[in-house]
């Protein structure tokens, strides 16, 4: 059974208010893999993640989780949304929010068992959040909240963790910390990760596979398979160059190209 991918996205097309956002997008995520969903802003990454979660109905195509269509009660997917604003007035400790990951779907009041409480402690330790576990969720910084949300998603032991732009709005140091943390917990918990980002360079050391999204279409494979001039040129519909500089990747469009997806700069880091 191990060769059934955790996630199969099969020819998904989505239109939002008359505009085609995703056009026959297909890719797989295998168990335990770290996959980066890369594309510039507004290219449909959030829409794709929402479609995978069943929050957006696709016009055509299907999503399979461990070979089965997604059921709303399934807890094999964990999700960390792009932006959560928690009011500092909300009386909830970070610790309690993580525990809510265990039983938020349960009706009624049941006491949490000692094993469950131990699990909360362990996961707080694993995401390095013990320091601020007793502070209010709304009073934490962006990076601290990110860890708490990751812990909340991980604690129900999903097979796949979806993260929507977790690195946006973080300083470079925090970006490194979160990437390292995700890499560590993915190994430790045996969970596959699908992470969307507009900037791939921070992820290059840990990504097993990449899904490159532009103009509603996607190319997927290992980084070396996808980040190549011929693959990306075909995706963009015109010629682009890929440069490797000091371990960073630059995707470069020809000047004067009239294409919406690539701004008119001689060099462009994608993104």
């Amino acid at each position: 059974m191990t060769d059934v991918p955790v996630l199969q996205v099969d020819e998904i097309s989505v239109s939002l208010s008359g505009r085609q956002v995703l056009d026959h997008v297909s890719f797989d995520v295998r168990g335990g893999e770290f996959t980066g969903l890369i594309g510039s802003n507004g290219v449909g990454k959030t829409t794709l993640l929402r479609t995978i979660l069943g929050l957006q109905r696709p016009d055509s195509g299907r999503v399979l989780v461990s070979g089965m269509p997604l059921s709303p009660r399934s807890r094999s997917l964990g999700y960390v949304p792009q932006k959560i604003v928690v009011d500092p007035d909300v009386p909830m400790r970070a610790r309690d929010f993580v525990a809510l990951g265990l039983d938020a779907h349960r009706y009624g009041l049941t006491r949490r068992s000692p094993q469950q409480r131990e699990l909360v402690e362990r996961i707080l330790h694993d995401v390095d959040a013990e320091r601020f576990a007793d502070n209010r969720l709304g009073s934490l910084s962006g990076g601290e909240q990110q860890r708490v949300f990751i812990a909340h998603a991980l604690i129900s032991q999903p097979k796949l963790l979806l993260l929507d732009e977790p690195l946006a709005n973080l300083d470079p140091r925090s970006v490194q910390d979160i990437v390292a943390l995700l890499h560590r917990v993915a190994r430790g918990y045996g969970v596959a990760i699908l992470l969307s980002a507009h900037e791939m360079n921070a992820l290059l050391p840990v990504m097993d596979r990449i899904v490159y999204l532009t103009g509603g279409r996607a190319a997927s494979g290992t980084t070396d398979e996808v980040i190549r001039s011929d693959v990306l040129s075909q995706l963009y519909g015109h010629h682009v160059d890929v440069l490797q500089l000091h371990g960073r990747v630059l995707v470069v469009a020809e000047p004067g190209q009239d294409n919406q997806d690539i701004p008119q700069h001689p060099t462009l880091t994608l993104g």
């Binding site: 979660l53 069943g54 929050l55 059921s71 709303p72 009660r73 399934s74 807890r75 997917l77 999700y79 960390v80 949304p81 959560i84 928690v86 909300v90 909830m92 929010f97 809510l100 039983d103 938020a104 779907h105 349960r106 009706y107 009624g108 009041l109 969720l137 949300f149 909340h152 998603a153 979806l162």
Partner: peptide, 23 residues
Amino acid sequence: VAVLYRPLMLTSIAPDIAAARGL
């Protein structure tokens, strides 16, 4: 309120996460 307590808590604080969990 006792029956709805936990799901209501999550939908109040983080509606996006709750929706992704089928609430």
